[in-house]
Design a protein around this nucleic acid. Structure first.
Lengths: 240, 240
DNA sequence: TTGGACTTATGATATAAATCATTGCAATAC
DNA sequence: GTATTGCAATGATTTATATCATAAGTCCAA
């Protein structure tokens, strides 16, 4: 019988189910298979969950914490591809293609991450209609985001890209109780890595947005004082 | 009974099956359902198969010809996202998400394109394990290409992007019998739209590559005289 | 508590690529 | 046969952003 201690050490996948778009709608028995074949691991801020180029051994599920997915581009410059938070799954693209990861996953806060073995996942995928339909939904949504980002990143000037990066952070991490401050601590360099621009340019754009009263910068925290205007600058189609 | 005329007017999906990654491995009965619920249409070069922003009514399958997928970015500038050829399927991302197309599909040569209705596809997807696993493979492969393109497009200088665009064309459309000339006619503007750069810059880069004896430019045709060098410039990871 | 390693900040300079402008050429229309 | 349009080609100019340089503030470790 499962005790409260068990639940803390290795939480049941049922606990996560509302958060997790991949496993929702799965049968009890399928969820039990996942619960029994996974382990929860701890990653400290800055630690790496998986490295670009390595082969996936399974699927990762975030139980708590925040993770960035990034790759090394030109001249060793890091490019942040996306963020993942509580309840989200990572590493499935590489797992499904049976290919090396093409990006590195790094904890940007302390994290608890479950790991489901490759065989467990792939066998269940073969059996479960719901799981494969959920996977299709997840992938096609990722594809949409990636294709949209492609256009944005290659065609928008830096100010719009920074605005967009901030909106992305807001969408993904939410706001503090004040309803204005983005609930994440990132350096200027990391924000630049989302927008694909240099640190110096990022700093300049941020202070420009601050002078325009669109943002307020306090310590590492960024508060959105004029969301409407920021959205207008980012003029982005979806990340409000 | 199907006659030869039937086959020309509305070819059986069985005919395409080796080419088509989505339908391969499907049961006879599933393939018959597709065969019976589709129509083959003709599109002349330059005609549009579907428009960005419109809702999908079904799935398109290329029986013959070449199609470009593009979107309108900044300042009305067109960005070519990818190409599709014989046997390939298009429009599934939007169909699966039940969202508007986020790009426009245009014939770049005369085409025959089959159309399978939305319901037929989605119902079969619910029923057929093979179809959903194939869909997953297709999507995860698209996702990989899109994520890779993201890094390339945003970080590489124009010369590398042009080299890459040419390699992409070679991969997708192949070479003529001489083993050097790319089997497609595109304007300089269109090549620029693949690489995300202006027409003038494209022309300059192409003539530079021509001076370096890497390319030979004759009329609209582009011949790759030094593939090794072109790959080195594109230093791309996968599109050889 | 001092030194080192980051991070923010800002100015000066360099540079890649866009934009603007012109010309010639080939294909198509009148 | 001439006008018109679209594309290739190239030069001159502009502009956005990267790069280089410096300084001050902050965090952490020894």
């Amino acid at each position: 019988m499962r005790t409260a201690i068990d639940e803390i050490l290795n939480p049941s996948c049922a606990t996560c189910k509302e958060l997790n778009k991949l496993f929702c709608g799965l049968s009890i028995s399928d969820r039990d298979i996942f619960s029994q074949n996974k382990r929860k691991n701890i990653y400290k801020k800055g630690q790496v969950i998986y490295y670009e180029g390595n082969y996936p051994q399974g699927l990762f599920c975030i139980y708590s914490g925040k993770i960035k997915i990034s790759t090394i581009g030109r001249k060793g410059k890091e490019q942040i591809v996306k963020f993942k938070g509580r309840g989200e799954v990572l590493g499935y693209r590489a797992l499904l293609n049976d290919e090396p990861y093409n990006a590195t996953a790094t904890a940007i806060s302390d994290c608890e991450v479950c790991h489901i073995s490759k065989n467990t996942f792939l066998e269940t995928l073969e059996k479960s209609k719901n799981l494969s339909l959920n996977t299709i939904r997840l992938l096609s949504n990722d594809l949409k985001e990636s294709e949209q980002k492609l256009i944005n990143l290659s065609q928008k000037p830096v100010k719009e890209r920074v605005a967009e990066a901030l909106l992305l952070l807001k969408k993904h991490f939410g706001l503090e109780k004040d309803g204005k401050t983005i609930e994440v601590n990132l350096t200027r360099r990391e924000i630049g890595e989302i927008a694909g621009i240099t640190t110096e340019t990022t700093i300049r754009i941020l202070s420009e947005l601050s002078k325009e009263k669109i943002l307020r910068l306090t310590d590492k925290k960024i508060s959105i004082m004029n969301l409407q205007q920021l959205v207008k600058i980012g003029n982005n189609n979806s990340n409000i």
